Computed example of a mutant assay.
Amino acid sequence: MNSRQDQLKAFDRLLTIMDELREQCPWDKKQTMETLRHLTIEETYELGDAILDNDLNEVKKELGDVLLHIVFYSKIGSETKDFDIADVCNSICEKLINRHPHIYGDVNVENEDDVKRNWENLKLKEGKKSVLEGVPKSLPALVKANRIQEKVAGVGFDWEQPEQVWEKVQEELQELNAEIKFGDKNAIESEFGDVLFSMVNYARFLKINPENALERTNKKFTKRFTYLEEKAKKLNKPLSEMTLGEMDVFWEEAKLLAK
């Protein structure tokens, strides 16, 4: 591993390159925070993919891309004299110190749950009007549901046992089935949302990230379906002309190969 001196030297090198690109590269000169925004989101998702794939070399590369964006935004901020990279670093340092009074103050904590509760209470003392104020509106619904539940749990609004949450899941499923019988699409959608929300809550009690769990299933399904397509191609037979029984044979083969 690199020494702290080497780490700081590497960061200084990145800042120097950013200065040069912003001054000399036609593309970099044109960028604004608004034009970078969607690229930053894309890079973050690519980092997430690399983490799920447990590809540490790719994680390193994607972290570099995300770091570049942080430096880029800071460079733009310095040009308008609003903030620079030092302000960004000092801001997060101050926040971390203030939010960890059990490390930098005289507050005692028993466990991780105490830390989370202190974190949310401190945010309210800092001027937040609501515990939910920090949940980004543009988050995907599944991720947002998980964050909402984590936030309210941080101030004690939570179930006590996983069994209670599972009972809630069963209750929501019964309500969904009842609405399906009536056939009202709006009511069905509402109850389906309640089922998903309660399942996300249950995942939290099982200490499972629902977004990661669903993405793993997406990857698993994609891999098996791709195997099915490859087999159909070798038989020179379009999937649309195969029976479900024929396709299921290859599907089961794909499941066995994955074990």
Rank of each mutant, 00 (worst) to 15 (best):
73 Y>F: 13
74 S>N: 10
75 K>R: 14
78 S>G: 04
78 S>A: 12
80 T>A: 08
85 I>D: 03
85 I>S: 08
87 D>F: 04
88 V>H: 02
89 C>G: 04
96 L>A: 11
97 I>T: 08
97 I>A: 10
102 H>I: 04
104 Y>G: 04
106 D>S: 12
109 V>K: 07
110 E>C: 03
110 E>L: 05
111 N>P: 04
116 K>F: 10
117 R>H: 10
119 W>D: 13
122 L>Q: 14
122 L>F: 08
123 K>R: 10
123 K>E: 01
125 K>I: 13
126 E>I: 01
127 G>Q: 11
128 K>T: 02
128 K>Q: 09
129 K>H: 11
131 V>H: 02
136 P>N: 03
136 P>Y: 01
141 A>K: 10
142 L>P: 01
143 V>M: 12
143 V>H: 07
145 A>D: 00
145 A>Y: 00
146 N>E: 14
147 R>L: 10
148 I>N: 08
148 I>Y: 15
149 Q>V: 00
151 K>C: 15
153 A>W: 11
153 A>R: 15
154 G>H: 02
155 V>F: 14
156 G>F: 11
157 F>C: 13
157 F>H: 14
160 E>Y: 08
160 E>Q: 14
162 P>H: 01
162 P>V: 06
162 P>Q: 12
163 E>S: 14
164 Q>L: 13
169 V>G: 02
170 Q>K: 15
171 E>I: 09
173 L>F: 15
175 E>I: 00
178 A>Q: 09
180 I>N: 06
183 G>N: 08
183 G>F: 09
185 K>Y: 05
186 N>Q: 06
189 E>Y: 08
189 E>S: 12
190 S>M: 07
191 E>Q: 14
192 F>D: 00
194 D>I: 05
194 D>P: 09
195 V>G: 01
197 F>H: 10
198 S>N: 09
200 V>R: 00
207 K>C: 03
209 N>Q: 04
210 P>G: 05
211 E>T: 06
213 A>Y: 03
